[in-house]
Amino acid sequence: MAIEVKIPTILRTYTAGAKAVDGSGETLSALIDDLDASHPGIKGRLITDDGGLHRFVNVYVNDEDVRFTGSLDTALKDGDAVTILPAVAGG
């Protein structure tokens, strides 16, 4: 099971500069755990201490924002494409 994950510039320090990496998992939550095993520390940039998705990042599965598809419980299958982007926002 391979899921391509696009990594934003700010998180490429965890992926040795790679713009995309492969991971696996049946849910987004499992995928992030898998990513963290290969790229230690990346999970902490995506998930808050309370276990929710960080508000500073947007995660898309096949171009759909996961906030509308079950967040970390979003189901994944082989061949899905995941994109992580930092939110662009401010005051």
Binding site: D65, T83, A87, V88, A89, G90
Partner: peptide
């Protein structure tokens, strides 16, 4: 870009716009 927050004190790119942009 559109300010999805439409606010005098906050701005935010709409999440779909952000993906399309990148």
């Amino acid at each position: 870009m559109r300010n999805a927050a439409r606010s005098p004190t906050f701005y935010e790119f709409d999440s779909a716009d952000l993906l399309q942009l990148y």
